[in-house]
Simulated scan of single mutants.
Amino acid sequence: MSLRIRLARGGAKKRPFYRIVVADSRSPRDGRFIEKLGIYDPMLSRDNENRVVLKEERVKYWLGVGAQPSDRVARFLGFKGLAEARAIPEQTRKNQPKAKAQERLRVAAEKAKAAAEAAEGAEG
């Protein structure tokens, strides 16, 4: 049984609220879980201490027995100093412009480079 420390969504429409839970990786996102380890309220400001609340002793226990945190939970644990924080990937396929937009950017960069070279030639 592979254990995951992950988020289970609750709250109303457009008002999310998450429980941080330990669950079997095969169980549904909002389904059965083993233990509740904390809460995450994204509606609160980032500097509010109640935005992420964790039961630190239990988190350490579950990490010790091999539970793997999800990416988001790993970042929370990194902020609290319970685990090493994972970096946010800079270059992924989803956050890149589509092919046509990349082509437009490339053409614009070439035009800017040509204009800069022309300005250099006019000065010198």
Results as ranks from 00 to 15, higher is better:
Asp30Ala: 08
Arg19Asn: 13
Ala116Gly: 06
Ala67Phe: 02
Ala109Cys: 06
Glu90Asp: 12
Asp24Val: 05
Ala115Asp: 12
Ile5Gln: 02
Ser25Lys: 13
Phe33Cys: 11
Asp47Val: 01
Val22Tyr: 07
Asp24Gln: 03
Lys113Arg: 15
Val52Asp: 05
Leu82Phe: 13
Ile34His: 09
Ala99Trp: 05
Arg93Gly: 13
Ala8Trp: 00
Gly121Cys: 04
Pro42Met: 07
Gly78Val: 05
Gln68Gly: 02
Val107Trp: 05
Ile88Cys: 12
Val73Thr: 04
Leu44Gln: 10
Arg29Ala: 05
Glu90Tyr: 11
Lys14Gln: 09
Arg72Glu: 07
Tyr40Leu: 03
Ser2Ile: 02
Asn48Cys: 12
Phe76Thr: 00
Lys14Cys: 02
Val22Trp: 10
Asp71Ala: 06
Arg32Cys: 06
Glu49Ala: 05
Gly121Thr: 09
Val107Gln: 15
Lys14Tyr: 01
Tyr18Ile: 11
Thr92Gln: 12
Tyr61Pro: 04
Ser27Thr: 07
Ala112Met: 15
Lys60Leu: 12
Ala101Ser: 09
Arg58Val: 03
Gln68Thr: 15
Asp30Tyr: 00
Glu90Pro: 08
Glu123Pro: 00
Glu84Cys: 05
Phe76His: 00
Glu84Met: 10
Phe79Met: 12
Pro89Ser: 09
Arg104Ser: 08
Gly81Glu: 12
Asn50Met: 11
Trp62Met: 10
Phe76Trp: 02
Ile39Pro: 04
Asn48Gln: 05
Gly81Gln: 12
Leu82His: 13
Val53Met: 15
Arg4Gly: 11
Lys60Glu: 03
Ser2Val: 04
Arg104Met: 11
Pro28Asn: 10
Ala67Asn: 05
Arg51Pro: 08
Pro69Asp: 06
Thr92Val: 15
Ser70Thr: 12
Met1Arg: 00
Arg75Ser: 07
Leu77His: 03
Ala115Gly: 04
Arg104Glu: 05
Ala118Gly: 13
Ile88Asn: 14
Ala87Lys: 15
Gly124Val: 14
Val53Glu: 12
Arg19Gly: 01
Val107Ser: 06
Ala101Asp: 11
Ser2Pro: 08
Thr92Ala: 10
Val52Ser: 04
Gly11Tyr: 03
Arg106His: 14
Ala87Gly: 15
Trp62Gln: 06
Glu57Lys: 10
Glu117Ile: 10
Ala74Gly: 11
Val53Phe: 10
Gln102Phe: 08
Arg106Gln: 13
Leu37Lys: 09
Asp41Lys: 11
Gly11Val: 01
Glu103His: 13
Glu110Ala: 09
Leu54Gly: 13
Glu120Arg: 12
Lys113Asp: 00
Ala114Ser: 10
Asn48Lys: 07
Asp41Gln: 14
Phe79Glu: 13
Met1Leu: 01
Ala74Asn: 14
Gly10Leu: 07
Leu37Tyr: 05
Trp62Ala: 08
Asp41Ile: 11
Phe79Val: 04
Gly66Tyr: 06
Asp41Phe: 05
Arg9Asn: 07
Ala101His: 09
Phe17Trp: 08
Phe76Ala: 01
Arg106Tyr: 07
Gly38Asn: 02
Lys111Cys: 09
Ala119Phe: 00
Ala85Gly: 04
Asp71Val: 06
Glu35Leu: 12
